[in-house]
């Protein structure tokens, strides 16, 4: 499995002012390095610019200043080397589950037989067997996000960008999806950048948590998660988990309060 180093250097994003007003700074100059096989969670209150940062890494948004580099090569546009799963349901409604998973493979011009073989492998790994020929609208939210994850993984990206992928799911489904993602990551050790506002989720999955400040966003704290892999749900009740959670809650509460004060 391939894994590359992601380097974010001085990435800044401001949005033009509305009706001649001053431009809004969404993201202060941010530096970040993510090594091969790391699982980094970006934790922050709503509107702190964490999704903006991820979209810039994906190439879906351009930084106002700064640069994103993957193994030394600058990235400017989206590409199949950076797979992405979005918070909103973005399966192609006119393709079946299998058709969605094959989308990127077909784009790369893989022969039919090989497409089918890769798709079958990821259908099995994400627990979608028996749903291959379903249309997206026939699936629950959890099943749709499984398919979206399989679609991104089937493309064999260097780095996986996850933008609150389980944010719209109910609590129980979300926990199952976290375990599924962890299981896949523990097997493949792909580089993952995971945006979330859920503290438990960040600790449970990542080996490093970056806390972002309220808008304009910047990385205000970096918290390593020294809990061993493989992890399972029982880890969420250990004292070590509790201590990390207490620390991150302290960091986040302050930022949420600032964000609310700024909005008021």
């Amino acid at each position: 499995m391939s894994a590359k180093t992601l380097r974010i250097a001085g990435v800044t994003r401001s949005f033009p002012g509305q009706r001649g007003g001053a431009p809004t700074l969404a993201l202060q100059p941010t530096d970040l390095a993510v090594g091969p096989g790391e699982f980094v969670a970006i934790l922050g209150p709503s509107g702190c610019g964490k999704s903006t940062l991820l979209r810039i890494v994906a190439g879906l948004d351009r930084p106002t200043a700064g640069q994103v580099m993957l193994d030394g090569a600058p990235v400017a546009a989206p590409g199949p080397d950076r797979g992405m799963v979005f918070q909103s349901y973005t399966l192609f409604p006119w393709l079946t589950v299998e058709g969605n998973i094959r989308y990127g493979l077909r784009e790369r011009g893989l022969p039919e037989a090989q497409q089918a073989e890769v798709a079958a492998r990821f259908i099995a790994r994400t627990g979608l067997r028996g749903f291959e020929n379903h249309w997206p609208r026939q699936l629950s939210g959890g099943m749709q996000q499984r398919t979206a994850l399989a679609r991104a993984l089937a493309n064999d990206p260097e780095i996986l960008l996850l933008d609150e992928p389980f944010g719209a799911l109910d609590h129980q489904t979300r926990e199952l999806m976290q375990e599924l993602l962890l299981e896949i990551w523990e097997a493949d050790r792909k580089t993952v950048l995971f945006v979330t506002h859920d503290i438990d989720e960040a600790i449970f999955l990542a080996n490093r948590v970056l806390v972002m400040s309220a808008r304009p966003g910047r990385v205000k704290a970096e918290v390593p998660v020294p809990l061993p892999y493989p992890r399972d749900w029982t880890m969420k009740t250990t004292p070590e988990f509790g201590a990390l959670k207490a620390r991150l809650m302290g960091e986040i509460r302050e930022e949420v309060r600032k964000a609310i004060a700024a909005a008021g």
Binding site: L60, P80, R82, F86, S88, T90, F92, G104, A152
Partner: peptide, 18 residues
């Protein structure tokens, strides 16, 4: 056309014509 579907396609390697 939903812009989020276009974005998903771009991250999967689709160019303009695709």
């Amino acid at each position: 056309t939903r812009p989020d579907l276009v974005e998903a396609a771009r991250t999967l390697g689709s160019g303009r014509l695709a």
